Simulated assay, not measured.
Amino acid sequence: MPTIAKNNDVITVIIIFAVEAERQQELIDTIIEFLETTVKHQSGFVSSSIHKSIDGVRVMNYAQWKTLEDYQAFINNSEVQAKAAKLSQFQIHESHIYEVVVSKPDDATLNIAKGGLIHLAEFRVKPENQMRLVELEKEYVGVSLQNPGLLSANFHRSLDGVHNVNYGQWRSLADFEELLKDPKYKPLSEYWQGLAENKFHLYEVVYTQPTD
């Protein structure tokens, strides 16, 4: 199964689609078909994990490639991209290439498994503020880990300097909702103020390649 690589032995590509709720499953099926027939056979492909947002309006592909050159060869291959024609009818909300910069706790199991509950916090940031945000993420991750339902927090920074994401793995929805309600977690809603715009969605992992 896919593993989040905090030692950065891969590059991470996160593609988030915006979709009408009634077409969410259609988009998921289209991505999986492309992965099964084409993507998984490409040189340098490591893994892909498809997530559906609980509210029905997002689909996320968390993909890993051996090198940046491998990924660029894939997206620049016109024959391969022609096979993705059906995906062009869906809107890409965000697409960036990332490296993992913080992964806590140190002993966390970082496997991505079907059925997992994921909180993806997206931070839109100016390049000059990106590393300051990373430092604050390192500082405040201990607050979030006081909630025993948070299995791991994995901060990523985009290589283009304009986006950070936190891929948080949770035990249950109730544990996450406690984070929103308990006053002791209030600093988590403030540390990025003045540095970034923030929004989040909750996702369920619905497919992995390699399979579990």
Rank of each mutant, 00 (worst) to 15 (best):
V46H: 14
S88W: 12
F45Q: 05
V134R: 10
S103C: 08
E33M: 02
G44L: 02
L151H: 14
A121D: 12
K126A: 11
L180N: 15
G56Y: 09
A121S: 13
L27N: 08
S47N: 11
A84K: 06
E20T: 05
H93F: 04
S88N: 15
D107M: 02
Y98N: 03
I54L: 08
I15F: 02
A108T: 03
I14E: 08
A85S: 14
S172F: 07
L110Q: 13
S48M: 10
N147S: 13
G149H: 10
H93Q: 06
I50G: 07
V80D: 09
I16M: 09
I97Y: 12
A85N: 13
I92N: 00
S152K: 09
F74A: 07
E122V: 10
Q209C: 10
R157P: 01
H51A: 07
L110W: 12
S43N: 04
I97Q: 13
V165C: 05
Y185C: 04
H51P: 02
K199M: 05
F34D: 10
E178V: 14
N8S: 04
F155T: 15
I92W: 00
V10I: 05
L195R: 10
M60L: 11
D182F: 09
Q24M: 05
I28F: 06
A18G: 04
T12P: 02
N164D: 09
N111I: 03
S48A: 15
G194Q: 03
E20W: 02
Q81R: 12
E94C: 11
F90A: 01
E94S: 14
I32F: 01
L68M: 14
L136Y: 08
